[in-house]
Design a protein around this nucleic acid. Structure first.
Length: 559
RNA sequence: UGACCCAUGGUGUAAUGGUAACACAACUGGUUUUGGUCCAGUCAUUUAAGGUUCGAAUCCUUAUGGGUCAACCA
């Protein structure tokens, strides 16, 4: 083998290589098949958007941000009994919050008239018929995956009779479930979806948009692809479970002789320690395992938003996990990483003590002193704030140990630490009550060690946070953990709710520096050495309530 | 026991016939007024067996494993 023959590597360093859909689109564009592309995000308005949808949104909208073209928002609202306007509104808000904008807001229900005419077109071509069979009869005649189905006794009705019956279905002459319109394909087909799929069913139900104008509604397979075609969608992206539908998708478009949209499938994203099935999420809400769709433990967009996730962190997450065709289980830790990465650059630093112990500085004789601390050391433009300092402070109880292990960098008898943005102190005396609980730590401070003007020459290994005891603000903090105890609750046998983590919500009190009173709910905070937090919507002027978005990485706690 | 889809480190994605890359996680070490951040390093012969080829993660065959399909849901 001679190395001269080796092909040069073409991938440019640092540039992300294309995923299989981008590659497909670039090829289509290059081949002149399209000059621009159209995608669509097609939610059914029967639940709130979750992380899985976020991935699809980023994919569909991301593609048309990268390539010429646009993305429509199209609600797949063909089942009036489960769909509601409330969901439409939340879905629109969530997409916008993520930072995407659609070209046209469309509804499958916009096309009901057209779809009705498509059905007549098929009937006239003898490619569809009205079936009087019951649901059970249809199921029985359908056969099984390993066994061919049998033709319905109504399959060979005349075109005229079919047209008449379909019109009367539309006019409301028949009760729910009494008749359907089915495509006439092949009851022995190896693809179950091609065994005369139901196209229309009768439902005397109120629709969230068309009200009572219709009592027949198209099925997914007779609405989705047709809507794509009407909108001239070039790349109709959906998840892998729709692979078998593609054959029917293509068949209908071909027989109808309409614009040839194409369906491409990718694998849905699974995230560990959570569920992303609308049915399960709805159950969590209905059975009050969580406080609502926007409970900060929910993997919904609204839950993540309330928890303190940023749009950017979610978009970066979707970008990082990429897109593929195989089953997968993405680590929740990656989502948390993306949030920390974003918030580290932007969150305002504040000091909050969660489990306070009083610290008295015995040689400090000023009443109070204002000290400056940077709002964010990662951002020079973030400015500083003043923090009061006096001889009575609060520090974390676990930042002190009477008998510290070898590499303990915090406070211990006779040891020194720096108080963040303040002075270096030394612990002189431990005060305890009768039960032996530590009630106070008596320390002395090094006056020359003031932060920013340290002439003491003393080097300490540890820096701890603190608040001034006199004006510390009590706050409520809601600490969240993963919602489930097991990686894949959906795969476990038995009711998935039995795997709910009983400790997914812990409510604790904290003592915060006074500047916390300015918190508005718009900003994200880092409580130094603790984690990232944001004001919750339940907060009042009297009682500030914070959500812990994510903890800081803690390589000491692990040991 | 039918058809279809999928198979690369612990996890997710790359490598498009030219000698396995990136990120997360984990583990080392350095820096640090956050045990955070940052920086450096360690961590895979690509499910298996055959075949084609000078050369295979990539193409072919078979096997194995996982998934999907029998709503008048989407």
């Amino acid at each position: 083998m001679s190395s001269e023959n080796y092909k040069e590597k073409t991938t440019t360093q640092g540039e992300r290589s294309l995923n299989f859909l981008e590659e497909l689109i670039e090829n289509d564009l290059k081949a002149g098949k399209y000059t621009s592309i159209v995608t669509r995000f097609p939610p059914e308005p029967n639940g709130y958007l979750h992380l899985g949808h976020a991935s699809s949104i980023c994919l569909n909208f991301g593609l048309t941000e990268k390539y010429p073209g646009y993305t429509n928002l199209r609600f797949d609202d063909t089942n009036p009994t489960t769909e509601e306007t409330e969901y439409v509104e939340s879905i629109k808000a969530d997409i916008q919050w993520l930072g995407f904008s659609w070209k046209h807001e469309r509804y499958a229900s916009d096309y009901f008239e057209q779809l009705y005419n498509f059905a007549i077109q098929l009937i006239e071509a003898d490619l569809a018929y009205v079936d009087d069979s019951t649901a059970e009869e249809i199921a029985t005649l359908k056969g099984t995956p390993t066994e061919a189905g049998k033709n319905s006794p109504y399959r060979s009705r005349s075109i005229e009779e079919n047209k008449d019956l379909f019109l009367r279905m539309k006019n409301g002459e028949f009760p729910d479930g009494s008749r359907t319109v089915r495509a006439k394909i092949d009851m022995a087909h190896t693809n179950m979806l091609m065994r005369d799929p139901v196209l229309y069913r009768i439902k005397h139900a109120h629709h969230h948009r068309t009200a009572d104008a219709w009592c027949i509604y198209p099925m997914y397979d007779f609405a989705h692809g047709q809507s794509d075609s009407i909108e001239k969608v070039t790349h109709s992206l959906c998840t892998m479970e729709f692979v078998p539908h593609r054959e029917l998708y293509d068949w209908l478009i071909q027989k109808l002789n309409i614009y040839p949209s194409h369906q491409y499938e990718f694998a849905r994203r699974n995230i560990n320690y959570t569920v992303t099935s609308k049915r399960k999420l709805l159950q969590l809400v209905n059975e009050k395992f969580v406080s609502g769709w926007d409970d900060p433990r929910m993997p919904t967009i609204s839950g993540l938003r309330r928890r303190g996730f940023t749009p950017k962190s979610i978009r970066v997450f979707c970008e990082k996990i990429g897109i593929g065709k195989r089953d997968n289980m993405v680590d929740l830790g990656l989502l948390e990483f993306c949030l920390r990465e974003d918030l580290n650059k932007t969150a305002l630093r504040r000091m909050v003590v969660f489990d306070p112990v009083k610290l008295v500085i015995t040689n400090y004789d000023k009443a109070v002193e204002m000290l400056q601390s940077e709002n964010n050391p990662e951002d020079e433009n973030s400015g500083t704030r003043d923090i009061p300092f006096s001889h009575e402070l609060l520090i974390e109880r676990n930042d002190f140990m009477e008998e510290p292990p070898k590499k303990y960098f915090r406070l211990a008898p006779g040891k020194m630490v720096r108080l963040k943005s303040a002075y270096i102190i030394q612990c002189d005396e431990v005060i305890k009550d009768e039960q032996g609980n530590i009630t106070e730590l008596h320390c002395s401070y090094i006056p020359e060690s003031k932060s920013g003007a340290d002439t003491s020459g003393i080097k300490v290994k540890g820096t701890i946070h603190w608040v001034n005891a006199k004006d510390a603000v009590p706050i409520e903090v809601r600490e969240y953990d993963r919602l489930f105890k097991v990686e894949n609750p959906a795969a476990e046998s038995g009711d998935f709710t039995s795997f709910i983590n009983p400790d997914s919500l812990k409510i604790v009190e904290g003592m915060a520096e006074p500047s916390i009173n300015q918190a508005s709910g718009k900003e994200h905070f880092q409580f130094i050495r603790k984690g990232y937090y944001c004001l919750d919507k339940d907060a009042t002027k009297e009682k500030l309530i914070f959500n812990r978005s994510v903890t800081l990485k803690d390589s000491w706690a692990k040991k």
